[in-house]
Each structure stands twice: as structure tokens, then as C-alpha cells.
Computed example of a mutant assay.
Amino acid sequence: MVKPIEFKFNDYLNKGFELIKKDYGNFLLAYFFCIIMSIIPFCGFLAMGNFYKFCRRVDRGETANAGDIFNFDDFVPYFILQLIIMAGIFAIYIPFIILIPVVGLFGDAGEVTGTASVLIIMLTFLYILALIFAVFYFALKGFYIPGLISLKKVKDIKTGWNMSKIMTKNNLLLIFLFSIVVSFLSQLGILACGIGVLLTMPYYYTTYYVALEDAIRQIEYDEIKEIGLKEKDEY
């Protein structure tokens, strides 16, 4: 049963830190493997998803092997997801591809008046604002898709998108702030002359895992509860 998720901002920050302390050396190795995996074309998201699986094993006290980052079981859904993102990026640039030659054509002909120039600048500015809003909206609405693919085994991107839209309802601002805070905390290693980034970046992934795992548990709890109620009704 998919529902809007109770987003536990502070809990995720704390539990992400607690999780990474369980096996820090292995987490760091897994993060290095993620970097290597991301070099392979179309495997960046897959590496991230595999890291979430690794986090789950550590979280549950199971044997966790950093080498599992190189697992390709979920390659197809992540590949399709990246193709969709690439198509979206291409669509974003279509207006610019059309606008730039038109402006250049009129400019060469000396037909761009001051009013027309201002209008073009205003339209471009408004388009960029709308573009920024759209990018953030779709990124935040799709926040749970990686967790649904890797942790919930949802292989259909359309299904994952529809589930994530419901799960993020009323939480977009919290998710946005969460992303900013986690990114900031994971980058604190820059203060240690750069090498510290390698020590703090795993926190970024572990904290995201905690948020995704909690969401999965919430919807699975409701699914089990609903099944129980149906069984009672049958009796």
C-alpha cells in the first residue's frame, strides 16, 4: 500500500552516522568501488543502488562484501532510468537550439530592435526559471525511485515513478532541505585539504539509504497490516 511517507529528517541524519560506524572500513572500500564502477558508462546509478544494498546488509547484521558493488542484476532498470533522464536533458535544450540560430539570424540582418532584445532576454530568463523549477520538481518527486529499484525490487520505472510521487507527497521541502544538509555534511572533508572528502562522502550514501529504507519499511508495514485485516474479514 503506497502512501505519503513520514519523513524523519533528524533520525535519518543520526542513523546514517550510526550505520557507518558499524563497519567504517568496509563502507569506505565500498565507496571506492562505487567511484570505479561509475567510470563504466551507464553504471553510475547502478553503483549507487548496489551501495544501498550493501548498506542494508550491514544494517541487518548480514555478511556484506564491498565487491558486491560490481553486481549487474539491476542494470536494465537503471539503464532505462538514465536513458529517460538523458532524453529529458535533450528536450530541455531544444528551445535553446532553436532560439540561438534565430537570434543570430536576426542579428546578422540588423533586425533585432532594443525592445526585441529585451523580450528575448526576458523569455530566456523565464524559461531558465521554469527549467530550474522543473528539474528540482522531478528530482524531488523521484527521490524514492533508486530505493524502490534496489530495495523493493520495483523494476518498472513508470511504476517506481508513480509510487515515488505518492510517497513524496507533502514532503518536497523536507526532502530538498535534507538533500542540502546531507550534501553539506558529506563535503566537510574539504576542510581537511581534500583527502577528507573520501572519509566523509560515504556518509552521503548511508544517510540516503536510511531515508530510503525507512520509507520502504513504512509502506511494507502498511501492506502487511492490510493483508492482516483482509484475513480477519475472511474469517
Score class of each variant (00 low, 15 high):
Phe136Leu: 15
Phe136Gly: 01
Phe136Ser: 08
Phe136Trp: 08
Phe136Val: 07
Tyr137Trp: 13
Phe138Ala: 13
Phe138Val: 15
Phe138Ser: 15
Ala139Pro: 00
Ala139Phe: 10
Leu140Lys: 03
Leu140Asp: 05
Leu140Met: 12
Lys141Pro: 07
Lys141Asn: 12
Lys141Tyr: 02
Lys141Val: 11
Gly142Ile: 05
Gly142Asn: 15
Phe143Met: 01
Phe143Asp: 10
Phe143His: 07
Tyr144Ser: 06
Ile145Tyr: 10
Ile145Thr: 06
Pro146Ile: 04
Pro146Val: 01
Pro146Thr: 07
Gly147Asn: 04
Gly147Ser: 01
Gly147Asp: 07
Leu148His: 04
Leu148Trp: 03
Ile149Met: 14
Ile149Cys: 07
Ile149Trp: 08
Ser150Tyr: 05
Ser150Ile: 05
Ser150Asn: 11
Ser150Pro: 10
Leu151Ser: 13
Leu151Thr: 08
Lys152Trp: 00
Val154Gly: 00
Lys155Ser: 10
Lys155Leu: 10
Lys155Glu: 10
Lys155Tyr: 02
Lys155His: 11
Asp156Leu: 01
Asp156Tyr: 00
Ile157Gly: 05
Ile157Gln: 09
Ile157Val: 11
Ile157Ser: 02
Ile157Thr: 08
Lys158Ser: 13
Lys158Leu: 13
Lys158Trp: 07
Lys158Gly: 12
Thr159Ile: 14
Thr159Gln: 15
Gly160Pro: 13
Gly160Asn: 10
Met163Phe: 07
Ser164Pro: 09
Ser164Val: 07
Ser164Thr: 07
Lys165Gly: 04
Lys165Ile: 06
Met167Ala: 03
Met167Ser: 07
Thr168Met: 02
Thr168Cys: 01
Thr168Phe: 09
Thr168Tyr: 05
Thr168Val: 13
Lys169Asp: 14
Asn171Ser: 13
Leu172Asn: 05
Leu172Glu: 11
Leu172Met: 15
Leu173Gln: 09
Leu173Met: 11
Leu173Val: 15
Leu173Pro: 00
Leu174Trp: 10
Leu174Ala: 13
Leu174Val: 01
Ile175Ser: 08
Ile175Val: 13
Phe176Leu: 12
Phe178Met: 06
Ser179Ile: 06
Ser179Met: 07
Ser179His: 00
Ser179Thr: 15
Ile180Phe: 11
Ile180His: 09
Val181Trp: 03
Val181Asp: 08
Val181Phe: 09
Val182Arg: 06
Val182Met: 01
Val182Cys: 08
Ser183Gly: 14
Ser183Met: 01
Ser183Gln: 12
Phe184Ser: 02
Leu185Arg: 00
Leu185His: 07
Ser186Pro: 10
Ser186Lys: 05
Gln187Val: 02
Gln187Leu: 15
Leu188Asp: 02
Leu188Thr: 11
Gly189His: 00
Gly189Leu: 01
Gly189Ser: 01
Ile190Ser: 13
Ile190Thr: 10
Leu191Ile: 14
Leu191Ser: 08
Ala192Glu: 12
Cys193Gln: 04
Cys193Tyr: 05
Cys193Lys: 03
Gly194Glu: 11
Gly194Lys: 08
Ile195Lys: 08
Gly196Val: 11
Gly196Trp: 06
Gly196His: 06
